[in-house]
Simulated scan of single mutants.
Amino acid sequence: MQKPLTLLLVAALTLSACNAWRNSRVNPSNWFGNSRSVPADTATAGEVNPLLPATRGRDAAPVDRSIPITAITELKVEPTPTGAIIYATGVANRQGAYAARLRPELTEENAENGVLAFSFRVLYPRDPTPQGPEQTRRITEAISVTNQDLEGIRLIRVTGQQNAREARRR
């Protein structure tokens, strides 16, 4: 009778110690917490004359016609053995948005502050499309980043037109 009781007690104590691993900073699934919504930064860098092209002739880069998605509704960072996968879900202004991508925003300020920032951009059809319900305008995009990209990163931010979502490293 004493042997099963002792084994049961040891098993219970061992299982209760698992809770410490779940909340530990060593556990990779705790590296980034839940995302939160923050206001979007709408500041533009310098004055630009929209009537003058940036470059002329054959050397001109293709024009990026994508625009930020209307609102970011979810941001999730899932660790992988080689880094992490960043999932962002947003709601477009109208139906038919396509070619969604998370475009990195590389600035010195972000690098100094340990911020990995992305802009969630989409393209819309030239012809007008109905707005429709939110479920039909929801778009999810993901990007994979390596451990080298995450080195020194404390915050991941995805920006849309109306808001941005952030996930902090714990």
Rank of each mutant, 00 (worst) to 15 (best):
3 K>Q: 06
4 P>R: 06
4 P>H: 02
5 L>M: 08
10 V>T: 09
15 L>W: 07
18 C>T: 14
18 C>Q: 06
24 S>D: 15
27 N>R: 04
28 P>R: 10
29 S>C: 02
30 N>M: 08
30 N>C: 01
33 G>N: 12
35 S>I: 01
35 S>R: 02
36 R>G: 10
38 V>I: 15
41 D>R: 13
46 G>P: 05
47 E>R: 14
50 P>Q: 11
54 A>R: 15
55 T>C: 10
57 G>E: 03
58 R>C: 03
59 D>C: 05
60 A>Y: 00
62 P>C: 05
64 D>V: 11
65 R>F: 11
65 R>S: 10
75 L>A: 11
77 V>A: 12
80 T>P: 10
82 T>A: 15
84 A>D: 03
86 I>G: 04
89 T>G: 11
90 G>N: 10
91 V>Y: 04
94 R>L: 05
95 Q>C: 11
100 A>L: 05
101 R>E: 09
101 R>A: 07
102 L>P: 05
104 P>N: 02
104 P>A: 06
111 A>T: 03
112 E>P: 00
112 E>R: 14
112 E>L: 08
113 N>G: 01
113 N>D: 14
114 G>K: 00
114 G>N: 02
116 L>K: 09
116 L>D: 00
119 S>C: 00
120 F>K: 04
121 R>M: 15
121 R>T: 12
122 V>D: 02
125 P>G: 10
125 P>E: 13
128 P>C: 08
129 T>V: 11
129 T>P: 12
129 T>A: 15
131 Q>K: 15
136 T>P: 01
138 R>I: 10
139 I>N: 06
139 I>E: 04
141 E>M: 12
142 A>E: 05
143 I>V: 15
143 I>R: 07
143 I>D: 00
145 V>M: 03
149 D>Y: 01
155 L>N: 06
155 L>R: 13
158 V>S: 09
159 T>I: 07
159 T>N: 01
160 G>E: 04
166 E>K: 04
167 A>K: 02
169 R>Y: 03
169 R>E: 04
